[in-house]
Design a protein around this nucleic acid. Sequence first.
DNA 1: CTCTAAACGAGACGGTACGTCCAGTCTTCGG
DNA 2: CCGAAGACTGGACGTACCGTCTCGTTTAGAG
Lengths: 215, 215, 215, 215
Amino acid sequence: MDDKKNERFSQPGESINDEGQPIGTRRRGDILENAILQSAWDELNEVGYAHLTMEKVAIRAKTNKAAVYRRWPNKAKLVVAAIIKHVPRPTNFSPDTGDLRNDVLILLHGIAKPMQAIGAETIHGLMVEYHGNDLSSTLPQMMQPRSEDKLTTAIITILKNAEKRGEVNLKKISAQVISLPVDLLRYKLLTTHDPISDQAVTEIVDDIFLPLVLV
Amino acid sequence: MDDKKNERFSQPGESINDEGQPIGTRRRGDILENAILQSAWDELNEVGYAHLTMEKVAIRAKTNKAAVYRRWPNKAKLVVAAIIKHVPRPTNFSPDTGDLRNDVLILLHGIAKPMQAIGAETIHGLMVEYHGNDLSSTLPQMMQPRSEDKLTTAIITILKNAEKRGEVNLKKISAQVISLPVDLLRYKLLTTHDPISDQAVTEIVDDIFLPLVLV
Amino acid sequence: MDDKKNERFSQPGESINDEGQPIGTRRRGDILENAILQSAWDELNEVGYAHLTMEKVAIRAKTNKAAVYRRWPNKAKLVVAAIIKHVPRPTNFSPDTGDLRNDVLILLHGIAKPMQAIGAETIHGLMVEYHGNDLSSTLPQMMQPRSEDKLTTAIITILKNAEKRGEVNLKKISAQVISLPVDLLRYKLLTTHDPISDQAVTEIVDDIFLPLVLV
Amino acid sequence: MDDKKNERFSQPGESINDEGQPIGTRRRGDILENAILQSAWDELNEVGYAHLTMEKVAIRAKTNKAAVYRRWPNKAKLVVAAIIKHVPRPTNFSPDTGDLRNDVLILLHGIAKPMQAIGAETIHGLMVEYHGNDLSSTLPQMMQPRSEDKLTTAIITILKNAEKRGEVNLKKISAQVISLPVDLLRYKLLTTHDPISDQAVTEIVDDIFLPLVLV
DNA sequence: CTCTAAACGAGACGGTACGTCCAGTCTTCGG
DNA sequence: CCGAAGACTGGACGTACCGTCTCGTTTAGAG
């Protein structure tokens, strides 16, 4: 997906029409793929997941349904691809500021931002469509509930650092507690229409997580 | 909805066809309403929320779409009605066993059962359709995220009882913590395909909730 | 097809839009059926059988494909229906002018006109689509090759009349010869793009048919 | 078409895969052309003219559409080329057995066989596609209606031979009558799904043609 | 007990989108 | 540098539902 197949197209010197499309050229490969994903992303933000259709995505990308279906067999996979392309992955997975509270806050804020960009409605929609299917290979990790991979290891790393400083005793912390802050944040993101306030994140850390882990 | 308009129909002496439907009679009112809700519930369980259609519900109920739309303006409201009819409301909202741990466990198990009956896919689907709209008037409380009503007051009642026994100090417990067990349970129900184990519920209480509230 | 189901619609006093369509009314039954058949007939004459599509017929009739497919399952049957509606059936099936030559000429001209109206391309197209299927129930008789029904009996009637006048001896005329004039005419209609000249019809009768049957 | 461009390919020493195709070599020229025509012919016999598509022909020939379109601009011309390649041309265009009846019968049987091999559906389909266009340059003569070329001259030759023997008087035979046997045969082939019986051919000659031409 | 208004059943209607197939054209890359 | 390979645009296919509407029938309830 991220490899550069045919990055250069439409060499200089070609005539360009009013939409900025090279005339006499036919978009292919990544050029076209990007146009479709951009179209899907725009539709997603304008009409929402429920009212996004393959047909309109194709029209908006000035192509046709076959070109879309050739790449993604259904709406869910198309939307996931558009999300992966347009939503920045959480940046700082293992902050190490020397302070447990700071580290966790940075991690949570890093998760909150991209999930807000996706939006609860889209996540719910994907859950419905993917119901039962395996989505771990396609969905970005931050959206995956129970992703024992990245996010959990991130917290464990943070906690290990804290343990070195004597802040916590990792052995006495259960798995439930480890995934607790991320789970709670995700729950709030899924069930709240308004953006998550900084205060809400702070409360998760100060009122719930830290009291449970600090020695 | 629950009043008895025309409960008796099909008086004795009428001919009955092989499906048990009275011949020459036309179902109306609650009789018909129940038939539609039953059909919707069956469809929901057979094909799932995403593939449930008003058309098939009407056909299965041996009626027509107009009769369905006359009662519920869209799929979401129809499904909610079917759920309310078929899923038993949590039984014990304010257990008082004289033990905080017991009380919370009873409450959580009481919530878990009906939500399992509904299923995560349906809840996600309803979230998509109701996205932005107010659903508090229609959705059963247990499904409502942030339902500050019933469930929160239930816990508060339980905690008050515990406070009388000296188990907790209610003033020092934040709102976040109060709704924590229910939120966590709901999160697990939404994001897990397998049924919630008793152990998982117990862990929520023993590893997370009680350590935060016990004095 | 020809019965009058809902001939009256759009009662006087209703508002009419610029296309002459009643506003607020939904066309049904024969009204809609006629609109579709008219649309199909117009398309047939404008773009020809090969380029007629169900989609364009529906659009032209200002309706949708489902309404078309509900009535005719494929292009061939739709076209046949349009033909039956718009092409007048041969008028004079059993002329009796007292002269064999005249009678046959009248019959042939009566057949030639409607078949010309249909056009060779359409007939070939129908033959392809109906290949193998039974079309006798749907195709107008004049188009049916080997329609031993109407047309043959028509000629036999004509010949019987001639026999009474002593012009022919029916017993000595083979079935092949009886259907010969109609077959030849149909062959020319199918294989000639230009309209059939009166002279061509006359030659069939004078050079071929009469020499074979006159005593 | 029939010239030998690159008859030899796949020189000895090349590796051959299980389909007998040389590996590492690219089929070109006649090799590829023959493969396409074979594929077209097979498709024609399996699915019929109406359901034959350029796409499937290309796939079946293990090549791509462009290679097909480069050689034949449309389905009709491709099919004609396949027919010319696979259907033997009528063998005996000017039999001279010393008997008019025999000569005509031989000619008609010679025409009937290849046309049966092509099939009525295909001929109708070609008629539709070629509607209006000139097909005389591409279609084999036997299929061309009104082919004043080969077939007519063939009959004229036969009749001239008969005239020498005093069987007919050519001057008194109209053009209509000359083309009559072939026209009738073609008509029957076009409008009958079952194969033409020998008897039917004999009847054309004995009941219709000979009575009209014999002195 | 009759009359009327409402609800019902049946299903057509206008409309949108589905996912697929094919016609032709164009670009790229391999031989 | 030709041509094989295959992606592209465009459009039609036939189907499924949506939510609305019409028509004729049945029923409940008022007078």
